[in-house]
Each structure stands twice: as C-alpha cells, then as structure tokens.
Design a protein around this nucleic acid. Sequence first.
DNA 1: ACATGCTATGGAAGCGCTTCCAATGGCCGG
DNA 2: CCGGCCATTGGAAGCGCTTCCATAGCATGT
Lengths: 331, 331
Amino acid sequence: MAGNPTIYDIARQAGVGIATVSRVLNGGARVSEDARAKVQAAVAALGYRPNRAARRLAAGGLNRPRIAALVPLFSADFYANVARALARGVAAAGMDLVLVDVADREDKLRHFTRLVEERACEGLVLCSMGLGEERQDLLRGRGVPFVALDYRLPGVPSCWVDNRAGAKMAAQCLLDRGARRLGWIDGPATVHAFHDRAAGFDAVAGADAPRVRAPAVTRDDGRAAATQLLDLHPELDGLVCANDLYAVGALEILRMRGRTVPDQVQVIGFDDQPLMDHIGLTTVRQPMAGLGSWAAAAITRLVVDPGADIPGKRFALELVARATTRDQTAG
Amino acid sequence: MAGNPTIYDIARQAGVGIATVSRVLNGGARVSEDARAKVQAAVAALGYRPNRAARRLAAGGLNRPRIAALVPLFSADFYANVARALARGVAAAGMDLVLVDVADREDKLRHFTRLVEERACEGLVLCSMGLGEERQDLLRGRGVPFVALDYRLPGVPSCWVDNRAGAKMAAQCLLDRGARRLGWIDGPATVHAFHDRAAGFDAVAGADAPRVRAPAVTRDDGRAAATQLLDLHPELDGLVCANDLYAVGALEILRMRGRTVPDQVQVIGFDDQPLMDHIGLTTVRQPMAGLGSWAAAAITRLVVDPGADIPGKRFALELVARATTRDQTAG
DNA sequence: ACATGCTATGGAAGCGCTTCCAATGGCCGG
DNA sequence: CCGGCCATTGGAAGCGCTTCCATAGCATGT
C-alpha cells in the first residue's frame, strides 16, 4: 500500500462495489443507509482522500488554468498591492490565482520545485526573484510559461523598475532641497531591489555616506535603524529610506527626538504605498498596480498562446514631493 | 469534435503516435526534429491545450489540497490583511490557497458555482458572506468542507466579531469623552458588517442621529461623506466612522476646514488597519490576523478530518484610544 | 555480410474516478 | 401465486495523459 488508498480499497474494506463508494462520496443519491454507513466507516478507517485529478478527469469538468505567483514576504504592502492587481488581472482572464508566500530562498526553491513537479499550474509569476538557467529550462521543458515581476530576467517577459535610478532620484531630491548630509536606511541584502537602491544612493551621496541596514522590512526595523543612524550621526539633515515603512518609522523617531521635519531633517521613502499621501511622506512612487496588471496580462496571454512574443516593460518611477521635504530651492 | 482536441487528434494531424506527441509536449527527450516540428505545427493548428487533470492523474503527481477563499473587495485593507493570515495558515498546513476576489453578489454566486461544479477546491473559506441552505447542501453533498469568516453562519464553523457591539463601543467612547452630537459615516448597505455597525451606532446615538452612507469603502468616499455630513450638520462634535479609511478621509476634511481634532471634533474609526497608530486614529481594532489564522486552521483541519467538530469562535473587538479622541473624562 | 547497440517510435496499460447499463432482489397489484 | 416495477447495486467503459515495453530502422564494429 505505497500510495493513498483508492476507492477500490474502500470498496473492498466496506464490502461494496466501487460504484456505491462513488455514490456515497458524491452526495449519495440512491444508496441504502447501510451501505452509506459502511462506506463512511471504511473511509474513516483508511483515511481515504479522493484524488482530485482523477475526479476531474472522470467528471469531465472544465479545465480552468491556474496561475501561481511566488511572492516573497506577502505581508509587505508592496506585495499586497501587487497581489491585488495580479488577482484582478488573472481573474479577468478567466483563470485562477494561486498565491504562494515564500519566506526565503530555500522556501522559494521548495515551492518552485513542487509547483513544477506537480504540474500545479499552467503559468508562473515570479516576483522579485531570479531563476537559474537550469530551472528556467525545467519550466520550458515542461511547457510552463513564466514571467518575472519586479525583476529583469533576460530572455523572459519581465516587468521591472529601475531601482537604482529611483534611489538616485530620491537622494538627489534631498540634495536639491538643501540637505547636505544624507543617511541611508537600507533593506535586507538578500533583496535585489534594496541592493540596487543602495547603489543608487551611493552614486549620489557617495559610498562612504552613513547607513544602517534594517534586518527586515517593517516599521519597527525602520525605527531601530533610524535610532542607530541618528545616534551615530546626529549631524544628518536628510534620510533616504529604502522603503516607506522605514521612513515612517524614522519620522516617528525624529518626532520623538524633537527634530523637525522637514526643517531640520528631510525624509524620503520608497514605494508610495497607500496612506503615504495622508502622512505627507515624500517618496518615490512604484507602479504596484501597473506591475501586477502587466504581469497578469502577460502570463495569461502566454498560457493561451505559448508562442506569443512579449517584450519586457520597464515602468517609470516617479518622485512624489510632499511634506517631509522642503520646497525645491529656487533657481 | 465537441470538446477540446486531445493528443489523439494531434497525433493524427501530425501523422505520428500519441507517445511521440507526449514526448514533444514534455520537454522532448529523444524525438527527431522532424517529428517535433510536425507535432508543434499540429498543436498550433488545432489550438490544443493539454488537460491538466489527465496529466496529473497519469503522472501520478502529489495530491495537494487546494483551499479557495472567496473574498469580497480584496482591495480593502481589511481583506488584504485577512488574506495574508489565511495564506500563511494554509501554506503552513501544506495546502494551496486560491484567492478569488468577488466583486459583488452575482460574481460571488458565479464563482461559487464554478468552484463547486469544477471541484476546483477541497475546502472553501467564505469571507463576510452568507450562503443559502441550498448551496450549503450542495457543498455538503459534494463533501467539500467550508468555513465562514467574518460572518456567523449557523451550523457552520465560523469566526466573527460582534460588529454591533464594536460600533456601540465606538459611539460610547466619544460620548464618554465629552462629545454630544455624533454623526455616523456608514458603509454600503450590501455589506452585513456595516449593517450591524449602524445598528450599534443607533443603539447609542439614536436612530435619528445624522448620518451619511458612503457608496464604497475608500478614503475618497470617506472624504465625500464627511463633507456632506459636516455641511448639513456643522454642530457635530463626534464622528463615528464605519471603517478607518472613512475616518482618515474625515480627518483630512476636518483639517482642511480648520476644525481641530480632538478638541472641536473627535473622530473614531473601525478596523485598526496598519499605520493607524502612526496617524493616531482612535479606532476599534479588528483581529484581522486572528480571523484569517483561525479560518485557515479550521478549514485545513476539516479537509484532513471531515468529521472534526469545530466550534465557532467570536473574536473580541478592542477599543484603541489614540490622538483623535480626548482623554477620558475623569470620574 | 552479420551481429550489436543505438535511437526514434508506436501501442497498450494503466492513473483513480464517475457514470452508464445491466442485473439483482423485494414488493406491488392483479 | 406470478409478472412487473422500482430501489439498489456491481461491473465495466472510458476521461486524456504518461510511460513502459517492444519494434523497427540504422550505423557501427569485426
């Protein structure tokens, strides 16, 4: 009994035919109470679990394609927003979205392998993550189309933003508005986006500008990083943050310490997640809905037409100036 | 040729055997270029799409259960947060989560029917929605377990909050802190939660207290409602809002009009979604993660053990006093 | 020229389930 | 007491695909 029990096992155990088992399992039309009870007992005894694939095959159900999205840190607002757009777009194309929240690299690989091995999806959206050639070939071999979101994967339909340019924009923005000593709150090194943003910051502020790396992506991390940064460098008059939550955390610390924003210290975030306009945070807007919608459109298209040629798309990042920065210095 | 073409059709069209077709389709080990080309041409010509169920059955893949969640207005933060917890919990149990964003009642029914007919899932989570007896029986007949989230469904494992009590708490909170004339920003009538909250508000403030109903659940709706409410009733000194976004919108309008908060007008929201602490909004905290986690645990349990008896759970609502209300009046 | 070892290929056997169809047995009316 | 009908049941035929196995076609080695 290597695999799971089948209805044959149940039938044998219950002393009835497979047809009867099936009837009991499917809403029991025309089955005696006696038979029903025996079957249910057998099901319980053997821990039987119907095989979905067989059911659908036999029942001849529809064949609705499934799109799986590998999303890191689903709890981050950026991804929640991306996921929304993805869900909408996929549903609009008449397909289902399976959201997989991957915690780390290892987790990602595990899920990836499973999805592919099990043929659990007809299309795959990879969010913010690379994929070795070997694994790409695995997908191609299996005929599973895939697209990259927030990551530029050569030869694969991808949508991305220029994080480096965005961070340059952010740092330059503060400089333009009179800041002279910039500090950088960086994100986890494992996330490529932060890597690129750090590079952008460096390009403008110099690689020796003060910085602290937050271990995760929460507001708490931002608070801790800001505390550390300001303790070490009280002279800072501009804080460039790798995401909005860090910036909000920093704002709280600054307020707590009585440093006025934007007069004494200017702050800029990255993402422009919801409510940032209410809070008045100057930030670099990411096209979250745009990325999600694009990816949904791309992958659903590829599922229907595997040969489609879909050019990658770079989405523009936009600086949104608000209350945590001063007015642009005239002239 | 009623249904979709099968590999037999492809094989015939291409003049090869089905085994060859299968090989081409699965990453083409040991197939001549000639055969491959012919098969691919046939696939394209016939618009062939492999049947997933058959594939998985034949390949003998794993049989990972799928949990579908019918979530209304996925774009609302409440649901985004619930969905996160759901995704985590379901993944932790080794199952997949299919998120379905239902726009309205009709949409809900359509998806529901499809999911059940197609046996697209082994378990169903219904968020904030009822389900007629008839449909419940359909699920039971099919042997598909289901749980209700944010809705108390008799005889079904449910988790919910007492929205009425929550709104009473909110209104009473303002009264306790010195407000005398309360206004109510209500949500769409189709959402049961708003219905209950309105009843709670009425119980404390009276059914004739001023109110405006917002057509949707965005901050913009809150702004519009607040504008209308304040125009009609400039004397209001307390605004009870059916959700946090309305409250934030109201705050913006109040600020714009120079009404101080909480001195002239006190404001309270509902949900305590992320960042409300930063904004300083007094609100009624909903256990979003708790609801999602509970539902995930319940449904995954039921999928594994259909006979499990899972008692419903009411989650407590908690008042979180912050800066948009005054200090509690002493004594 | 013949045995040998490949590669490419087709046929057929299931994967586990649903469901049609025929068969069984008990009960009714005549 | 018997034919006929209905409720219940089991067997068997696929659902469309993957894959094992046997076959055939060729190019080698001797």
